[in-house]
Design a protein around this nucleic acid. Sequence first.
DNA 1: TATGAATGAGCGTTCATTCAT
DNA 2: AATGAATGAACGCTCATTCAT
Lengths: 196, 196, 196, 196
Amino acid sequence: MPKIVDHDSQRGKFAEAVMRLVGREGLEGLTMRAVATEAGLSYGSLFHYFDSKDDLLMHAVHYSTSQQSRRVNEFSIRYKGLKALEYLMNDDALVDETSREDSLVWMAFLYKAALKESFAEMHAHLISGWLERIETLLREAQCEGEVRQDMAPEFEAMALWVYSAGIGQQGLLHPAMFPPVVQKKLISAYLDKLRK
Amino acid sequence: MPKIVDHDSQRGKFAEAVMRLVGREGLEGLTMRAVATEAGLSYGSLFHYFDSKDDLLMHAVHYSTSQQSRRVNEFSIRYKGLKALEYLMNDDALVDETSREDSLVWMAFLYKAALKESFAEMHAHLISGWLERIETLLREAQCEGEVRQDMAPEFEAMALWVYSAGIGQQGLLHPAMFPPVVQKKLISAYLDKLRK
Amino acid sequence: MPKIVDHDSQRGKFAEAVMRLVGREGLEGLTMRAVATEAGLSYGSLFHYFDSKDDLLMHAVHYSTSQQSRRVNEFSIRYKGLKALEYLMNDDALVDETSREDSLVWMAFLYKAALKESFAEMHAHLISGWLERIETLLREAQCEGEVRQDMAPEFEAMALWVYSAGIGQQGLLHPAMFPPVVQKKLISAYLDKLRK
Amino acid sequence: MPKIVDHDSQRGKFAEAVMRLVGREGLEGLTMRAVATEAGLSYGSLFHYFDSKDDLLMHAVHYSTSQQSRRVNEFSIRYKGLKALEYLMNDDALVDETSREDSLVWMAFLYKAALKESFAEMHAHLISGWLERIETLLREAQCEGEVRQDMAPEFEAMALWVYSAGIGQQGLLHPAMFPPVVQKKLISAYLDKLRK
DNA sequence: TATGAATGAGCGTTCATTCAT
DNA sequence: AATGAATGAACGCTCATTCAT
């Protein structure tokens, strides 16, 4: 009988090593050797679990976003409308100490998405997911009279999304000028504009 | 007697080669050899004009942004307030066929800025410039009664800036969902929210 | 109680997998993992049955040549002299669709024989077997008056052997110029030269 | 002005290093690092002169065969017909101490030709050259009455070629059984069969 | 100043082999 | 016996940078 290991949990170990490593050294430090070392496993093992570096990075992004999704879902049960939307944006866009790693991985991913089809596809897929979710919450808010009736949910979702993306980018790149507290204010200021 | 060459013009040639190359082949194709070939100059000479690849990229970004600045300045003479602001955002954020090259270089730059101090510094410097300019235009608009008096120009400038950044990012990464016409609409929709 | 398996039959399965794999993917595709997969057996078990990749290749060659020997033996019962010789050469040298796999494995083996002592030894051993067999058939033909009396069987056997080897090599490497029908004609033309 | 080097002569240095190395260590020892070391140049340099390992091997084969061609040409001026043919075969097929390196490189090349299109093409091209040359010499011999009038030069050229190939292969792989002197005898015995 | 040859550290990837179960 | 996870040396190749002319 073979050594009993949980394939997925090993993949998870590597994914977490990617997050830590990118957070610490940036994308430039993301070499396969470094990932193996960071994960405390051997170099060859990595290729046992991932076909390629791209495969690994995709998995890491998937890993990170699905954790985020879970958080948002848990929140969505308790809150509705603008309140839920604010939470979603805070979780999605806001970059602080604890989410910096994720944001760096996300940036690496965006960078790859600009260059490589497979990454671009995954990006498109993730975007549609977020846009849909935002749109739904906007409709909810409209139903409940939180926002103006003449607001077009589909279009406004795009606006919210690009605003989030911008906050996330600038929060990562220029934390001195866009510290978490400012990011939060920017989010709530935007949502205020939507209110009646 | 040394050959007489215009140092700055040679540097400009390389900068332009960077832009064309990135636009055509992506950032992965941005090798020093390729830049020299694209510029029609010799490989070795690149290192006479730039200390390193980073130095070259910094110069290319500087070159690109200063051209943009010039365009905006020319426009600012003729227009004021929200009108000028709209032009600025269209020029700054909007990604179409012709500005795709610039945006890719900009993205490479942002990516570097997330990793390296020298790039981050230049980024911070560029940001302050843009924020100041936006703030000034907002004040102008406020004076002329285009926007509400209770709007805080400094804070609103930040909001506009992150919004621009988000549009630029998504326009670059997902042109199918954020084509130029949608980007334009997003910009004007936001400015409408500022009007009384 | 240990599982009862037929050691030789398992080795045979792997040997056949080697032949199929080389025929399909070439020698470059001959990895231990691929062999195990092709044989439908587990990766680790390969190393129970073979000490090393070289060991496996040796076995595959042995397997292939002993099958060939069997075919030739069956034929030798019914035919004698030049007729049997022609059959032997057709079976040994001729490369067509069905024997291409064997020929590729044989070529890999020759290649190894040029580099490694153990392969060279096996090669020498196989050669002597073939030379002896050819020599015997030539003597038979001489006894029956099919070929000239002044022919020296031992030396002529070497000539026939190198001729066969050449046909096999070129038939494999350049099937367009040396298709099976041409190979056949080359063989019979040579044998004609031996007849009185 | 750049460092003045003769591009072709540098390529030649690497080609010669390939021959020596393959002769000494076999094809398995033919790594790019080993070639660079053997040539006394740096690893990186190799890729300055050759696009890939295949490119290097192709060049080495070209280098080796063109030297052989030159030798044959020089001989062809002085001799004609069967005499020239015998020289050609001795030069082409015969494997002794001094030509062992070339033969090993040739074998490596054949091996590649069985796997890769680009090598197969070059092989086909080289073959046609040799076949043509052999055919011409056979016609000469026929004109001068050295060989029978009913011999078909085109077909006989193929026979001679495969015979040569076989001698070369076996001479390389089994020098104990096919030493140079035996190879020579095999060649002249075959040519004798062609004489009236 | 200008050139391109030279350098070698570093990359992602492969793969035979070993080992724990 | 059987399995497949674990290992790491070695590979071809890239590329920014240095250097000799």
